[in-house]
Computed example of a mutant assay.
Amino acid sequence: MELRVEQLIAGYPGHRAVAGVDLTVPSGEVVAIVGPNGCGKSTLLRSIARLHQPESGRILAGDADIWQLRQRQAAHRIALLPQSPLAPEAVTVAGLVRYGRHPHQGLFRQWSREDERAVGEALRATGVAGLADRRLDQLSGGQRQRCWLAMVLAQETPVVLLDEPTSALDIGHAVEVLDLVREVAVAGRTVVMVLHDLAGAARYADTVVAMKDGRIVAQGAPRDVVDSALVRELYGIEADILQAPDDGSPVVVPAARHAAAAVAAR
Rank of each mutant, 00 (worst) to 15 (best):
S167P: 00
V119C: 03
V175Y: 02
A154R: 08
V209N: 06
D213R: 14
S228A: 15
G220K: 14
A205H: 10
Q155H: 09
A132N: 03
R182L: 01
D197R: 10
R134A: 11
G214Q: 06
R144V: 01
E116K: 13
G188Q: 12
V160W: 02
E116R: 14
Q143K: 12
L169W: 05
A229R: 15
T157M: 09
D115W: 03
V175A: 15
L195K: 03
L149F: 05
D206M: 12
A174Y: 01
A168N: 14
L123D: 03
D163K: 12
A201T: 09
L136R: 08
L198S: 07
A187Y: 03
R215W: 10
A168M: 11
A118R: 11
R223K: 15
R215I: 03
I216Q: 06
D224S: 15
V217Y: 07
L178W: 02
W148A: 01
V192Y: 02
G130F: 01
L230I: 08
V184F: 03
E156W: 00
V194H: 07
P158L: 08
V175R: 14
W148H: 13
R146H: 11
A132W: 01
Q143N: 10
A218G: 11
P165Q: 04
E116Q: 13
I171Q: 12
E183W: 00
G120A: 10
Q219P: 03
M193Q: 15
L136S: 03
R223G: 10
R203D: 06
P158A: 08
A218L: 13
L136C: 08
M151K: 12
E114M: 00
V128T: 08
Q143I: 06
A199T: 15
E121W: 00
V181I: 14
R215Q: 15
R117K: 13
H173Y: 12
A154W: 08
V175M: 03
S228I: 09
A129H: 13
H196Y: 09
L198Q: 07
V209W: 07
A221N: 11
P158W: 05
A154G: 08
L139N: 06
G214E: 06
V177C: 04
E176W: 00
A221V: 14
L230G: 06
G127P: 08
P165H: 02
A168L: 10
Q145P: 09
Q155P: 05
I171T: 11
D170A: 04
D197N: 12
D206R: 13
L180E: 01
D133M: 04
A201Y: 09
W148M: 10
R144Y: 05
L180F: 01
L161R: 11
R144P: 05
P165C: 04
V181H: 06
A205V: 09
L169R: 06
L161I: 11
Q155L: 05
A129M: 04
V119F: 02
T207D: 07
S228T: 15
G130D: 10
T126M: 07
R146K: 15
A202F: 12
D179I: 00
L169K: 04
V209H: 05
L178D: 02
V128Y: 07
V192H: 05
Q138L: 13
D213K: 13
L195V: 06
S167T: 15
K212G: 02
G120V: 01
L161G: 11
P222E: 14
